[in-house]
Amino acid sequence: MATREEMSRSFGSAASVYESGRPEYPADAVAWLLAPARRDGHSLRVADVGAGTGKLTRAVVEAGAEVVAIDPDAEMLGVLRDNVRRVPTFVGTAESLPLPDASLDAVVLGQAWHWVDPVPASAEVARVLRPGGVLGLIWNVRDDDEPWVRRLTGIMHGSRAEEMIAEGGPTVAAPFTGLEEQSWHWSRPMTRDALFDMARSRSYIITAPPDERERIEAGLAELFDELGAVGDATVDLPYVTRAYRAVRP
């Protein structure tokens, strides 16, 4: 099995399927993340860290913020630049941000905080935030209360993020002292190809040996056949978006 480091840096090789298969973020959830950082008469300055192909970046831009995108993988940032125009991009991590002190109103991470070391990452995020700025963490998680989705998760193997949320959610460290939490339920219509791309964008599958990938794909194909996800037909995949925020003292 691949190491945590190998899995965390695996996404660049699957950037195109990540862009196709991963869902967008609900606008209401992004607005909630950013709300404490808004100040009358000031535009929001936000860093999307672990930005990947720009799924969250897009939503933050649409919320009216000035955004920089940061990711450890240059391949992912290349796809981001193709999809989100006029957003500066930098290679970096939550533990080492290429940004000046107190320069931001918010730092957000989508599907990413479970890959970081929360102690140095919290300190580094606090360094680049102004007092009163916001650390926002967000995940789109499939709703396993639906039986077929629970079966889907079993075939694909649970992710680090899903395990972390099931165990009580993310951890932050000083100077942040706690997290507010909110959730949104929604669904995404997906074709068979998009469902496969969603699965193929997961680090466990990207790094799995060929025989394990073959086993997973056979199980997925059987499930998708049963669901009627054939050709252009769509299936509604239910999600729960879980968002967490903390204000820098």
Score class of each variant (00 low, 15 high):
Asp71Pro: 04
Ser43Arg: 15
Val87Ile: 11
Thr153Leu: 15
Leu137Pro: 01
Arg192Cys: 04
Ala166Leu: 12
Pro131Tyr: 10
Trp113Val: 05
Ser20Cys: 09
Arg4Gln: 14
Asp82Phe: 05
Val128Ala: 09
Trp186Phe: 13
Tyr244Val: 06
Ala2Pro: 15
Arg85Leu: 13
Val125Arg: 06
Glu162Pro: 07
Thr93Met: 03
Ile155Ala: 00
Leu223Asp: 06
Ile165Asn: 03
Met190Glu: 12
Trp32Tyr: 07
Leu109Trp: 05
Ser10Gly: 01
Ser122Phe: 01
Val68Glu: 07
Val116Asn: 08
Met156Trp: 05
Gly158Ser: 14
Ala174Glu: 15
His185Phe: 13
Ser122Cys: 03
Glu163Cys: 00
Thr241Tyr: 08
Leu56His: 08
Gly168Ala: 07
Leu227Asn: 06
Val68Trp: 00
Leu44Cys: 00
Glu62Leu: 11
Leu137Asp: 04
Trp115Gln: 04
Asp82His: 14
Thr191Ala: 01
Thr241His: 08
Leu77His: 01
Ser20Asn: 12
Leu99Ile: 09
Arg81Gly: 02
Ser187Val: 00
Thr3Phe: 03
Pro131Asn: 12
Glu146Thr: 15
Ala47His: 04
Asp236Arg: 13
Pro120Lys: 09
Thr177Glu: 12
Ile206Ser: 08
Ala63Asp: 10
Arg192Ser: 10
Ile155Cys: 02
Gly92Lys: 02
Glu75Gly: 04
Val235Trp: 07
Glu212Val: 13
Pro26Trp: 10
Met156Leu: 15
Leu97Asn: 05
Met156Tyr: 06
Trp184Glu: 12
His42Arg: 15
Val235Thr: 12
Leu135Asp: 06
Pro209Tyr: 08
Ala29Thr: 03
Asp28Pro: 08
Ala174Gln: 12
His114Asp: 01
Ala233Tyr: 00
Ala74Val: 13
Ala106Pro: 02
His157Ser: 14
Val17Cys: 06
Arg127Cys: 02
Phe224Arg: 01
Thr234Ser: 00
Phe176Tyr: 12
Arg200Glu: 15
Pro147Asp: 11
Leu77Tyr: 02
Ala15Asn: 08
Gln182Pro: 01
Met198His: 14
Ala63Cys: 10
Glu214Arg: 13
Ala194Gln: 15
Thr53Asn: 07
Pro118Asn: 07
Phe224His: 08
Tyr18Ile: 05
Ala59Pro: 04
Glu66Ile: 10
Leu137Ala: 02
Leu56Ala: 11
Arg22Trp: 10
Phe90Tyr: 14
Glu222Thr: 15
Ala229Lys: 09
Trp113Thr: 02
Asp236Val: 07
Thr207Cys: 13
Ser187Met: 03
Gly12Ile: 08
Asp144Tyr: 11
Ser16Tyr: 11
Val30Thr: 04
Ala27Glu: 12
Ala59Met: 09
Gly231Ile: 11
Val240Ala: 12
Pro72Asn: 05
Arg4Glu: 14
Pro26Thr: 10
Arg248Glu: 06
Glu66Ala: 14
Met190Ser: 11
Met156Pro: 01
Ala47Cys: 09
Pro72Glu: 02
Ala173Gln: 00
Thr3Ala: 05
Asp117Glu: 13
Arg127Ala: 00
Ala35Val: 06
Val68Gln: 04
Arg130Asp: 05
Trp113Glu: 03
Phe224Gln: 02
Ser10Thr: 02
Arg45Met: 01
Glu163Leu: 14
His114Asn: 07
Met156Ala: 13
Arg58Pro: 04
Ser203Thr: 06
Arg242Ser: 09
Pro189Asn: 11
Ile70Ala: 01
His185Lys: 12
Val141Gln: 13
Glu212Phe: 03
Trp113Pro: 03
Val247Phe: 07
Val107Ile: 06
